[in-house]
């Protein structure tokens, strides 16, 4: 579904992605993990077209997407920081985003799910961070698209909303969607992810299932497995 070849990106002197190759097959939940500065966000934003790579190719369903924009109609994105024009109401914002896409949306269902009806006429500037994140989720999940990219989806959510989110993600997966998630919450990865893509220093350091990772690192706990992965890297780096 997504094919990334020799992706190279640097910001100034800092190389963030170095000849990255990645293939993500259709269907399933892919957790993109890695320490801070490993290139997770750059990778995601490259797929979204927000960052323009210096070199390399990205193709979705066999079509090159660099410098194109129509493909985004079949892509939902949940940005990390939910910051909206403070003078619009929730309702207006949802209407606006719907307006921007030439496809159907099932916003009402999601609004009810996250308990947003009382906030519909409130201005976005007056909402709490958690409520904003819920609005953010509505905006992301209301469209029926084949690719869903979630950047830190759990930020600021209360436990009930978190459960709803997990259900939502599972439902989308069941429909055969491809879901890319970045997160720092390992339990979330453990519970949800089918596959882990581990980035380190702009390269894919590990790609495979959660179990494979645990097996490879000989750890029961995912957090420890990841820590182990990073540690090993440092060891090899210093031994060189």
């Amino acid at each position: 579904m997504i094919e990334i070849k020799n992706l190279y990106k640097k910001f100034g002197k800092l190389t963030v992605l170095e000849e990255l190759n990645l293939t993500i097959s259709k269907g399933g939940i892919f957790a993109i993990l890695g320490p801070n500065g490993s290139g997770k966000t750059t990778l995601i934003k490259s797929i979204l077209g927000m960052i323009i790579p210096n070199k390399g190719e990205i193709a979705i369903d066999g079509e090159n997407i660099l410098r194109k924009w129509k493909y985004r109609n079949n892509l939902n994105y949940l940005p990390q920081v939910a910051n909206f024009p403070s003078n619009l109401s929730v309702k207006e914002l949802i209407e606006m985003v719907k307006n921007l896409r030439p496809k159907k949306a099932n916003s009402q269902e999601l609004i009810d799910l996250f308990g947003l009806p009382p906030f519909m006429n409130k201005k976005l500037g007056n909402l709490s961070g958690g409520t904003k994140q819920k609005v953010n989720l509505v905006l992301t999940f209301m469209f029926d698209s084949d690719l869903i990219i979630l950047d830190e989806p759990t930020t600021g959510l209360d436990p009930i909303a978190l459960i709803h989110l997990k259900e939502l993600i599972s439902k989308e997966k069941a429909k055969g969607k491809t879901i890319l998630v970045t997160t720092h919450i390992m339990s979330f990865v453990d519970e949800m992810a089918d596959e882990i893509v581990f980035l380190l220093d702009g390269k894919i350091y590990f790609k495979g299932s959660v179990d494979a990772l645990k097996k490879q690192t000989d750890q029961e706990n995912l957090e420890h497995a990841i820590a182990n992965l990073i540690e090993k890297q440092y060891q090899t780096a210093t031994s060189k």
């Binding site: 924009w69 985004r72 892509l75 940005p79 909206f84 024009p85 921007l100 905006l139």
Partner: peptide
Amino acid sequence: SSKEFTELLLAQPIKR
């Protein structure tokens, strides 16, 4: 001030 919102828009199928 609308930077983050702009990013949301950038992920929509609209030309930059």
